[in-house]
Amino acid sequence: MKAIRCNTYGPPSSLVLEEVASLKPKAKEVLVAVKACGLNFPDTLIIQGLYQFKPELPFTPGSDVAGVVKEVGEGVTHLKVGQEVFGFVAHGGLAEEVVVPANACFPKPPQMDFPVAASFLMAYGTSYHALKDRGVLAEGETLLVLGASGGVGLAAVELGKLMGAKVIAAASTDEKLSLCKEYGADVTINYTKKDLKATIKELTEGKGVDVIYDPVGGTYSEAAFRGIARNGRYLVVGFAAGDIPKIPLNLPLLKEAAIVGVFWGAFAMKNTKANMENTMTLMKWHAEGKLKPHIHAIYNLEDTSKALEEMTNRKVRGKLIVKVD
């Protein structure tokens, strides 16, 4: 089979398309013929060796997949050969085949095409887990989303509005913020033009925001935290900016605010029942037309490097998809 391979850590241009051996599922695993793979910002870090975990070289990147079951391993009863599915893996998705843990592989709803299915689980799973389980976002509270036009950010905007919050979307361009408005943001902040802390205070009449969703990190994190409300929750989702911020610990003390880590991948694998309940809720909302992933562009497998370059250069709004024929 063909697969995108990372043979040495480096930029997207260092990735190669190679012929590799076909795969075989073990017990409680599913072999999937990949039709589409969604790209996520961590993919750009993993191939450079800059992410929290480093797969052993060489490896195939890609986590969000959708396709057709080719074979099921021993003990798998909820899926069968020929069934259309979607799921997630730590890596391996940018290939013609991938082995998916059975508890991370779900029947694909008929109303979802393969690109939409491949754009769904990680973005919405992360954001819903963050807002519901970690941030305990309540109806009527105010939610600030940093990096709001990216894959997980836009999902957080959409979910926050659906959960009854007032949503403030923050991003780096007016074009990106225009998309956030389409996805439910009540107000927006271009943090390259306006002082983030001052604008948060202005928009909340001095109270501050109840929940901050931060997949970006970098220089804006402390300014955002300084705009948090008393008893607020600051959700640490990721570090797309590349820099891990250092928050002065007197700030959470003074506001009695919480800094809360969000690691959906670990939650999904260790709390499978709770993750399944979340996933079923998200699929129901999608079926009802309440959630609609925004697909920025679709690339062919051989053009994966170009897609990841676009993501690295912060040009993507919503999700990028790689289709596999």
Results as ranks from 00 to 15, higher is better:
Pro61Asp: 11
Ala90Phe: 15
Asn103Glu: 08
Ala130Trp: 10
Asp64Phe: 15
Gly153Ser: 04
Ser149His: 04
Glu97Tyr: 12
Asn250Pro: 09
Ser172His: 06
Val16Gln: 04
Glu96Asn: 12
Ala118Met: 10
Gly289Asp: 01
Tyr51Thr: 07
Ala156Met: 02
Ala171Glu: 01
Ala297Leu: 13
Ala123Leu: 14
Val20Tyr: 04
Ala165Val: 02
Thr77Gly: 06
Leu162Ser: 14
Leu137Met: 08
Ala169Gln: 01
Phe53Thr: 11
Gly87His: 00
Val209Leu: 11
Val85Lys: 12
Tyr234Trp: 05
Pro101Gly: 04
Thr8Gly: 11
Val324Cys: 08
Gly67Trp: 04
Met283Arg: 10
Gly238Met: 08
Leu57Arg: 13
Ala170Glu: 00
Gly150Asn: 14
Ala224Gln: 02
Val16Met: 10
Trp264Cys: 09
Gly160Thr: 14
Ala198Ser: 11
Arg233Trp: 03
Gly92Phe: 11
Leu162Asn: 14
Ala90Gly: 15
Lys24Asn: 07
Met122Thr: 09
Lys194Trp: 10
Leu17Asp: 12
Asp243Glu: 05
Gly153Arg: 01
Gly242His: 07
Leu159Val: 00
Gly93Gln: 04
Lys207Pro: 03
Lys319Val: 13
Glu18Ser: 01
Tyr220Val: 12
Lys2Met: 12
Lys270Met: 13
Thr272His: 10
His129Trp: 13
Gly265Lys: 09
Leu143Gln: 02
Gly10Glu: 15
Asp243Pro: 15
Ala169Gly: 02
Val211Tyr: 11
Ile259His: 13
Val85His: 13
Cys6Trp: 07
Thr219Leu: 12
Ser22Lys: 13
Ala33Gln: 10
Asn231Thr: 15
Lys132Gly: 13
Met311Gln: 08
Leu154Ser: 03
Glu141Tyr: 11
Gly208Ser: 03
Thr312Gly: 14
Val216Arg: 10
Thr219Asn: 09
Ser172Thr: 03
Trp264Pro: 13
Gly151Phe: 00
Tyr220Lys: 10
Gly184Pro: 03
Leu251Lys: 03
Asn231Gln: 08
Cys6Lys: 04
Lys132Cys: 06
Gly62Asp: 15
Ile189Glu: 00
